[in-house]
């Protein structure tokens, strides 16, 4: 799918503001299209386990991915970062193969859904235990600093409001600040950790107030506003790149789906859905695209069509591929030859 391959910036490529805006929006459209398809496949019983989508967070995630450079930067995505993954350059096939359990995917059927990545290509694979990404990215950056290969690379990772309550998140932020690493930590405050509202999650005025406690810069942004996300994340990424240490970005928005596609999110009151937090960033972004002169309605329609075609192709390919064979899996958790348990 060469179309997808061109959706991310290569190292050294100077990108105009207009191009970045267009690339972000296209990644949002692609992610939205893919996740709609994945949701249908799940509801049709074609995907086992679960489907976790980034509805309502496409602008924030896509903007972050678009501000990073594939091949140089590190992106540790979380559960609602399909748009960021696409903008960063993860192929649709990596997503569909992992969700559909193809043995040819990066996780080979050994892990599924959003637990996927290509660690050696700057795209680590998350574990389900929240908060650990901060220190994992810190280690990747510290390694490069020791190797003398850090250059102007930046590491970025994402958290939700729920993840900010973990010890791992706190330990990671503190470590990153102590080491003065070029990191961007993006917190999507989407108002609910599964069903738990923010007033049961934290008691501070705003999560961004925590930044000063760690000794790092803090930024706030309206997560429903694509252009605002691009501006704030762009300056945070550039500040980190310029050696100003870790940057915390807190975005306010609302998760416009359940925790997973098994969840109808009935616990979200109508008043919250109707509040400014509940604006759909896809609609806002489309208006911004046309009114700002970044794209015509015709171009957007063509992008949607292309996204649908690409998603269909990636799903079809993965569906035709074999799943893992228990008689062929080596059942070996060790890289060292001969260490596999024989029992």
């Amino acid at each position: 799918m060469p179309e997808v391959e061109t959706q991310h910036a290569q190292v050294g490529a100077a990108e105009s503001w207009e191009d970045r805006v267009r690339r972000t929006f296209r990644a949002m459209v692609t992610a939205y299209t893919l996740e709609s398809k994945l949701s249908s496949l799940y509801k049709a019983g074609k995907i086992v386990g679960g489907v976790y989508i980034g509805r309502g967070q496409e602008a924030l995630s896509g903007a972050l991915g678009a501000c990073l450079r594939r091949g140089q930067d590190i992106f540790f995505p979380l559960i609602r970062d399909q748009a960021g993954r696409t903008a960063f350059g993860e192929t649709l096939l990596d997503a569909t193969r992992t969700y559909l359990g193809s043995v040819l995917g990066p996780m080979r059927g050994r892990d599924g859904n959003i637990h996927r990545g290509r660690p050696r290509e700057g795209l680590p694979a998350m574990i389900s235990h929240l908060g650990g990404g901060v220190a994992t990215v810190s280690g990747m950056l510290m390694a490069r600093r020791m190797q003398g290969s850090l250059g102007t690379a930046v590491g970025a990772t994402c958290a939700g409001d729920g993840a900010t309550s973990t010890g791992a998140f706190h330990e990671g932020l503190n470590l990153a600040a102590v080491e003065h690493l070029p990191m961007v930590i993006v917190i999507a405050n989407n108002q609910y950790a599964y069903s738990t509202p923010t007033e049961r999650q934290f008691a501070c005025r705003s999560l961004v107030d925590r930044a000063v406690g760690y000794g790092m810069a803090g930024h706030e942004v309206d997560g429903t506003d694509m252009l605002a996300c691009l501006e704030v994340l762009g300056s945070a990424v550039e500040a980190a790149r310029a050696g100003k240490g870790p940057q915390m970005v807190v975005a306010s928005l609302l998760r416009l789906s359940g925790h997973g596609e098994h969840d109808d999110a009935a616990y979200v009151p109508e008043s919250v859905r109707q509040s400014p937090l509940g604006r759909d960033c896809m609609t806002v972004a489309e208006t911004q695209m046309t009114e700002g002169g970044f794209a015509t309605a015709g171009e957007i329609a063509a992008w949607r069509e292309q996204a649908a075609e690409d998603v269909q192709a990636a799903v079809a390919t993965a569906q035709q591929e074999p799943g893992p064979d228990p008689f062929r899996d080596d059942w070996n958790a060790y890289a060292t030859p001969g260490f596999r348990e024989q029992t």
Partner: peptide, 21 residues
């Protein structure tokens, strides 16, 4: 020297190992 953060120390080591250390 590391801060008193055993969880972060191990996660940091995993990240560093991925990068070849």
């Amino acid at each position: 020297d590391a801060p008193i953060s055993e969880d972060a120390m191990i996660a940091m080591a995993v990240g560093a190992a991925v990068e070849g250390m």
